[in-house]
Design a binder for these strands. Structure first.
Lengths: 329, 329
DNA sequence: CATGTAAATGTAATCGATTACATTTACGGG
DNA sequence: CCCGTAAATGTAATCGATTACATTTACATG
């Protein structure tokens, strides 16, 4: 493993010249450029990023904080981030916090220790105080889950509006007893989606029954199942269920199916995110589509601009209601 | 952002002493240790990994190569890798090649340029020549998909045996017309699983009909659907299907369901990997369980040992047949 | 041919740590 | 009080690049 010195001496030039060749600068004569390139080839030289990184004091690594990769919702976002990152010579460190503050802290430390140049946080459970404090000296963007007035730029969708549309769709189909499978209301998206749910009901003169609102501990198939188990145990069962995540909806669907009930005849079902599996279930799932790839690319661009020191504005993207079998015989 | 110099001068000691305090070495008197710690706190000092990494010429980053994170099969493996990595102060760079040689090369370059200390490759489509060449100077482990006699240590399962058991299970249930949804035979696991399939058939005197063997271009829900579409178009439809991946099986199931056929009555179905969703389908999927988390932890441990320069032996782990509704009314 | 200017190349400081080796300090025993 | 040894601390080289600034070279012009 040769270093720049050895290349320089083999080529009979200074390290500066080698560096200039490597970095493709113009001020090198063709003759020396060739000499240097030969030496590089001969020694199999690859510039060490460790040296370069120290000198330029950047790591060219972006940290992406997600609660867990088990939720396919993040897949396309990550793909978007990755595509932009790679095109700009960055790499991404994908960090699952698993809602574990210790893990989170390990990852925050990577930024503090300059092992990463910035953070895209998608973790709803992130410690927002720490994140804001970090954002004073480091480039940080929130994606999907965000915080109002934190000063941290974000890219997300109109959760309340999306939720409103989903529930309105159910109401138009004639449903009045509509349950909500939400997650913990400490998360902004959970509050916003619940707001949309309530707004739709109220607008149509349907009273909001707190007994119809369920809170899953987390997003996950099994939590959807659990919630649906409770719903199916109710005296006055709802005729429709809106889950704030496809994973919850798919878990719920599993529970409905295994009791022999029919979707949508016995119970209609709407999810959120349009993950790939939502089209594989039987019946297929009506859901809200988010522009996930786009969101990822934007988040990455915003972060890179922020790293460059530019001002960055937050963005709200459009969503879409995708009507499938679970709400339409 | 203070550096070690500033801490040293504020504490009135040399940088060496600060470094010793930071790295928790014994040869520092309690008095100076306290002085230094105060200075560190006062200046909000965080040691830069860039400096350290250059000096120790390691990046403490492990590169994990996977074809795509869309396949939940990798989730638990990644979790295993991550847990070990973090416990040993490493971080992982998760790299999706998307079967794109260009991407792959970008990632290989990270190792060449010392941005990563080693590679765990799980990509069946990896360029094995390049990987072997790299392994001469860099620590590399293969996980799940491997290469015989390449000199690269691996951790995997007995694909042929697992496949054999799955198909034998179908035969015992009385099936004789059993189709195989495989992937491209250029992958070792595909060949091994096909071998197991053939072995089971032959052992029971069932002739292997090449018309029953289908090749999906890739692993993915839609490819499973496509393959099943062809199968359902056959004159002499099989009574059972074994897919070499749960994703393929779930796609296939979707196709069967939407034609109104019943699993397992009309067609029995077996998948491979036991991903979470395989228990959410209707009916639930009989499948082969791989010890994915374990595989991940082992791969990580092997890689770290390899980085340390130790000799590392390959490992074959046990698998398990999980019988569920898709093969048993 | 001297000279000025631009192009090409070189010198050496620098990024921020670690660490071998050197030096100083502390302290117990004679 | 001196000395030897161990403990504590310091000095300075080093990792491998980048780059400001200095120097050399090339070449056109009068």
């Amino acid at each position: 493993m040769a270093n720049i010195q050895q290349v320089a001496s083999l080529a009979g030039v200074s390290v500066a010249t080698v560096s200039r060749v490597v970095n493709g600068q113009i001020t090198v004569s063709p003759k020396t450029r060739i000499k240097v390139e030969q030496a590089i080839k001969e020694l199999n030289y690859e510039p060490s990023m460790l040296g370069r990184n120290l000198r330029t004091s950047e790591s060219r690594i972006l940290l992406v904080l997600i609660p867990t990769i088990s939720n396919p919702f993040y897949l396309e976002i990550i793909r978007g981030i990755e595509d932009i990152a790679i095109s700009q010579d960055y790499n991404i460190l994908l960090c699952q916090t698993d809602t574990n503050p210790e893990r989170e802290n390990i990852y925050f430390n990577l930024v503090r220790k300059k092992m990463a140049d910035g953070i895209i946080s998608m973790d709803p459970a992130v410690n927002i105080e720490t994140l804001v404090a970090l954002s004073e000296h480091h480039a940080i963007i929130q994606c999907s889950e965000y915080t109002i007035n934190s000063g941290i730029p974000f890219v997300s969708i109109d959760n309340e509006g999306a939720s409103y549309r989903a529930v309105k769709h159910l109401i138009k189909l004639g449903h009045e007893k509509i349950a909500l499978i939400n997650t913990d209301e400490k998360y902004l998206y959970a509050r916003q989606r619940q707001m949309g749910y309530q707004k739709a009901l109220e607008e149509h003169g349907i009273p909001v029954d707190q007994g119809y609102i369920f809170h899953a501990q987390q997003i996950g198939l099994e939590y959807g199942q659990q919630a649906m188990k409770k719903i199916l145990d109710m005296d006055e069962m709802p005729t429709a269920v809106f889950a704030v995540s496809d994973l919850l909806a798919i878990g719920a669907l599993k529970e409905i199916n295994s009791l022999g009930l029919k979707v949508p005849d016995d119970i209609a079902l709407v999810g959120f995110d349009k993950i790939d599996f939502s089209n594989m279930t039987n019946p297929t799932l009506t859901t809200i589509a988010q522009p996930m790839y786009k969101m990822g690319t934007l988040a990455a661009k915003m972060l890179i601009n922020k790293i460059k020191g530019e001002r960055v504005e937050s963005i709200i993207l459009d969503h879409e209601l995708v009507i499938r079998e679970s709400t339409s015989g």
